[in-house]
C-alpha cells in the first residue's frame, strides 16, 4: 500500500504542476516550455534553506515559492514580446540555462552530486516522516493550491487572462495592460511550480539536476494538453492519468532504462494521438463537464471500434 500512497503523493505534486502550467499555457496562451526550471528553483531554494541554513520547513517553502515566482517574472520581462513558438523556444532556453547553473554552480548546488538529506517537513512540532503522513500533507496542500488557482481563474482577473489568450490586440484595445497580466500569470504559475518543487524536495529528500530536465516539462505539458487547455479539472485528470498510466510497466520484467524509455514512449504517443484526434484534450474549456467526459469515452470507444454508431457531437 505504501507504493500506492507514494504514487498519490507524486500525483498531488503533478496536479499542482499541471494546474499551474495551465494558468500560463491554457488560460493565458503563453507556451511555456521552461516549467521544470521553476519546479527546480523551488526545490533547490527550499532544500538549501532547510538543509544548509537550517530554516524551518514552512519558511523554506515560502522562499521557494517566492524565488520561483521571481524567476518567472525575470524570464517574462525579456520574453513577453515574443509570440507562440518563439516564446516556447526562449522559455526552453531559459530552462536549460537554469539547469546549467544547477549543474555547474557546484559551491552551492553541489552540481551533479545533488543535495541529499533534505529534512522532512515539520509543522508545529509534528514531523511528516512516513509516506502516509506526507500523503496527508501533500493532498491538503494540493487542494488548497487547486482551490486558489480556481479562484484566480474564475474571477475578473482570470477573464482578462483568457482574453489575452484569445486576442492580445483586442485585449489591448479594451485597455488591458497585457504585459502586467502576462507577468502576473507567469509569476503565479511559476510560484505554484516552486511550491510543488519544494514539496518534492522535502518528500524525496534528495534532488539533483536530472529531475528538472526538459523531459519533465514535456510531461507537464502532456498533462495539461491531455486534460484540456484551459480546464482546471482537465489538468487534475491529466496529471492523475499520466502519473498512473505508465506504472503497470514497472511490473513487467524489463531493465530500468527500458522502463524509463517506455514511459516516455507512452507519454509521447498519447500526446501525438491526442493532437491528431482530439487537440482540445479530454475537457476543453466548457461548462458542460459531465457530458464532455462521457462524450470523450464514447467517442474513444467509437474510434477503436467498441461502438458502432458515432456519438452525437456536443456543441
Amino acid at each position: 500500500m505504501a507504493y500506492l500512497e507514494h504514487l498519490l503523493v507524486l500525483a498531488s505534486i503533478y496536479i499542482i504542476l499541471s494546474a499551474s502550467l495551465n494558468i500560463i499555457i491554457g488560460f493565458t496562451g503563453m507556451l511555456n516550455l521552461g516549467h521544470a526550471a521553476f519546479f527546480g528553483i523551488g526545490a533547490y531554494i527550499s532544500a538549501l534553506l532547510a538543509k544548509v541554513i537550517g530554516l524551518s520547513w514552512i519558511a523554506s517553502v515560502i522562499f521557494g515559492i517566492i524565488g520561483a515566482a521571481l524567476a518567472g517574472v525575470l524570464i517574462g520581462i525579456p520574453c513577453l514580446r515574443l509570440r507562440g513558438d518563439y516564446l516556447a523556444i526562449a522559455t526552453l532556453g531559459f530552462g536549460e540555462i537554469i539547469r546549467a547553473v544547477m549543474k555547474n554552480w557546484t559551491s552551492v548546488t553541489r552540481g551533479p552530486l545533488g543535495i541529499p538529506g533534505i529534512p522532512k517537513p515539520e509543522l508545529l512540532g509534528y514531523r511528516f516522516a512516513s509516506v502516509n503522513e506526507f500523503l496527508l500533507l501533500s493532498v491538503v496542500i494540493m487542494i488548497i493550491s487547486v482551490w486558489l488557482i480556481h479562484r484566480i481563474i474564475h474571477s475578473p482577473f482570470g477573464r482578462v487572462l483568457r482574453s489575452i489568450r484569445e486576442d492580445e490586440i483586442a485585449s489591448l484595445s479594451l485597455g488591458k495592460d497585457i504585459i502586467k497580466y502576462k507577468l502576473l500569470a507567469l509569476a503565479i504559475g511559476a510560484g505554484f511550480a516552486g511550491l510543488a518543487g519544494s514539496l518534492y524536495a522535502h518528500y524525496i529528500t534528495f534532488i539533483d539536476p536530472t529531475t528538472f530536465t526538459f523531459t519533465e516539462t514535456v510531461l507537464m505539458v502532456s498533462m495539461v494538453v491531455l486534460g484540456g487547455m484551459g480546464s482546471l479539472t482537465g489538468s487534475i485528470i491529466g496529471a492523475i492519468i499520466l502519473t498512473l498510466l505508465p506504472e503497470p510497466i514497472r511490473f513487467v520484467q524489463l531493465p530500468t532504462n527500458v522502463v524509463a524509455a517506455s514511459r516516455q514512449i507512452i507519454y509521447s504517443v498519447a500526446l501525438i494521438l491526442l493532437m491528431l484526434f482530439r487537440p482540445t484534450g479530454i475537457l476543453g474549456e466548457n461548462p458542460n463537464r459531465k457530458n464532455k467526459i462521457l462524450y470523450f469515452f464514447k467517442h474513444l470507444a467509437w474510434k477503436i471500434g467498441l461502438r458502432t454508431n458515432k456519438p452525437e457531437q456536443l456543441i
Binding site: 516550455l33 514535456v218 514512449i265 493532437m275
Partner: peptide, 9 residues
C-alpha cells in the same frame, strides 16, 4: 506539441 512529442518518442 506534436513535434516535441515526436522528439521524445
Amino acid at each position: 506539441i506534436t513535434a516535441i512529442a515526436l522528439s521524445i518518442f
